[in-house]
């Protein structure tokens, strides 16, 4: 009890003693873990490099400017590839993501004991692995190039889209579904009349949101050989051509800002 009586005076405390002790232990344990982690990192760090970092940073900055504007001419094609990787990858992910989401949602799955866990496993596997790692795998399997990038983006996006979509499906209003069922509609008709119209705006919003993220991610896929502007970035970093890196950087920044603006506009128009 948070309230105790000591010598006739009631003493109020926010939590009972056991819970307070537990709270302190939690904080202590958490702090200990963080401190231990920090020490482990510190042990793996060359501190001379770190003390040197301001100098290095200033040096880097001085080499990066001015950007090599003429280099832009060679960047349009990789930038176009980057846009295609993001867009085609997103489109390719939507096709399998929709059925997976319907199989994973509690209220639409045909079997909660068999199919739902399988669908959730697909979702968590796709989500756990970053698109850059998928790209690493695909470059190794189907060779370097744009296709590896598209497939990598698609594989990563399936889980993302399916997860948000199945959550939207689970949150729908049940009344219209009941009403459509009561007319004698079949399973597919109940889904297409009772559920699809309710989740369509969410689906469009999720897709555009993921496309926006994918633009960002596809800019670095080239680092592992999966096409796009990242290839140029990798090449420039390798030969320490910092003015080119700055140029790539500015272009990527502009693309990301434009894509974010487009995505915000589209989402605004849908809702």
């Amino acid at each position: 009890m948070p309230v105790r009586e000591v010598a006739g005076v009631r003493d109020w405390q926010r939590r009972a003693r056991g819970r307070r002790l537990l709270g302190w232990l939690g904080w202590l344990g958490g702090t200990a873990v963080v401190v231990a982690s920090w020490q482990a990192i510190s042990a793996h760090t060359m501190w001379t490099f770190v003390w040197d970092a301001p100098v290095q940073g200033a040096d880097l900055a001085s080499r990066m400017f001015p950007p090599r504007w003429a280099y832009t001419a060679r960047l349009w094609r990789p930038l176009w590839d980057t846009l295609n990787i993001a867009t085609l990858g997103t489109l390719a992910a939507l096709v399998p993501a929709v059925p997976v989401a319907f199989l994973a949602a509690r209220n639409t799955t045909p079997s909660a004991t068999l199919i739902r866990p399988a669908a959730l496993l697909v979702i968590v596997s796709s989500r756990s692995i970053n698109s850059l790692i998928w790209a690493l795998l695909l470059v190794s399997v189907i060779g370097p190039g744009v296709l590896a990038g598209i497939v990598a983006i698609a594989l990563r996006s399936i889980g993302f889209v399916a997860k948000l979509l199945y959550e939207a499906i689970e949150e729908i209003d049940r009344a219209p579904v009941e009403a459509v069922t009561a007319t004698g509609a079949g399973r597919g008709q109940v889904v297409s009349y009772g559920i699809v119209p309710q989740v369509l705006p969410a689906f469009a919003g999720i897709s555009v949101f993921r496309w926006d993220i994918n633009i960002r991610e596809s800019t670095v896929l080239g680092l592992v050989g999966a096409g796009g502007i990242g290839l140029e970035l990798q090449a420039s970093v390798n030969v320490l051509a910092w003015p080119q890196v700055t140029m790539i950087f500015l272009l990527v920044l502009a693309t990301v800002i434009v894509s974010e603006w487009v995505s915000a506009r589209v989402r605004h128009a849908i809702i």
């Binding site: 009344a175 219209p176 009403a179 459509v180 004698g184 008709q189 009349y193 009772g194 369509l200 705006p201």
Partner: peptide, 23 residues
């Protein structure tokens, strides 16, 4: 139904026609 249970994002006609889904 009590709260009408219409599919709100469908048009009036689509809601009415959903009565034929069993056919």
């Amino acid at each position: 139904f009590q709260e009408f249970a219409l599919v709100e994002r469908l048009s009036v006609m689509e809601n009415v026609l959903s009565g034929r889904l069993g056919y």
